[in-house]
């Protein structure tokens, strides 16, 4: 393995100048995001520093319970973030996101760890944790896109759905165009990424491995696996979440439930 360039804290400070420059520009243009940039800059620094030390410890210790704990924490934060990003009135959104993100991402993780990487032990933290991070992050984004789009459409396109119901369509038939649009919204970013990767974008995992001295031809194999697994995670998670949203949006008598009170009295 070739020698890598170590980044000192001083060097990180220099890198932070880029963030300060972005802050100054957005402040000058009155975009109203400089506060978020400050918070984001500090949070990303702290979160990643902590993550670095935590990962170092878990990899060194190698115990299964640390891996499980870390996965639960990552999943918890993902669910919490997804719930927070969903402004639409969605019944039981906490349950929907929990079931969809946990089942969707863990199935893909298990498949990758067992069938692709043949990890021994299966929970080998050096592989499982970074890969789980990528899977869960993409599952969270896809689930949020699918749920917000579908919930928004169930409200905005209520007339369309009820027209179909009134013409004798089942709930599944009536909601089909909305579900299709929601799933496309959720899955298209992954599909687009598949199309441009290696031409327009050189993704983080691969560039990281190359900088760390890994043979680029091996690094791209990892990246191909990553692309496939995050596409699968996005697809699986968004399908599970839309199935749940639809189940909760309709009654067994194929009636579209009222999401929230619309009129005011008193």
């Amino acid at each position: 393995m070739t020698e890598t360039v170590d980044i000192r804290y001083f060097d990180l400070g220099i890198a932070a100048l880029l963030l300060f420059a972005s802050m100054a520009l957005t402040w000058h243009l009155q975009l109203g995001v400089h506060r978020d940039l400050i918070i984001g800059g500090i949070r990303s620094f702290l979160q990643l520093m902590v993550m670095g030390y935590v990962l170092a410890y878990i990899i060194k210790d190698g115990a299964w319970y640390w891996v499980v704990l870390a996965l639960m924490l990552m999943l918890g934060v993902a669910v919490h973030t997804a719930v927070g990003r969903t402004r639409e009135a969605v019944v039981n959104k906490h349950t929907i996101y929990t079931v969809a993100i946990v089942s969707g991402s863990m199935l893909v993780l298990l498949f990758i760890a067992g069938a692709v990487l043949h990890l021994r032990p299966l929970y080998d933290p050096r592989y499982v944790l970074p890969i789980a991070g990528m899977i869960i992050g993409n599952a969270m984004t896809a689930a949020t896109l699918a749920v917000t789009r579908l919930a928004g459409d169930l409200h905005a396109r209520r007339r369309e759905v009820e027209t179909a119901l009134a013409l004798g369509a089942s709930a599944a038939q009536a909601v089909h165009p909305l579900r299709r649009d929601a799933l496309r919204t959720a899955i298209l970013p992954s599909v687009n990424a598949l199309l441009v990767v290696g031409v327009v974008s050189l993704p983080g995992m691969m560039t990281g491995q190359i900088i760390a001295g890994q043979d680029p031809t091996q690094a791209v194999r990892y990246q191909i696996m990553v692309m496939y697994m995050i596409t699968a995670a996005a697809t699986l998670t968004s399908i599970i979440s839309t199935v749940m949203v639809i189940r909760l949006a309709f009654t067994p008598a194929h009636q579209l439930r009222e999401a929230s009170p619309t009129s005011t009295v008193g």
Partner: peptide, 13 residues
């Protein structure tokens, strides 16, 4: 069956 009902009882919005 609500689906059969709605095929027999049409609605115009």
């Amino acid at each position: 069956d609500p689906i059969i009902l709605r095929r027999r009882v049409g609605m115009l919005f």
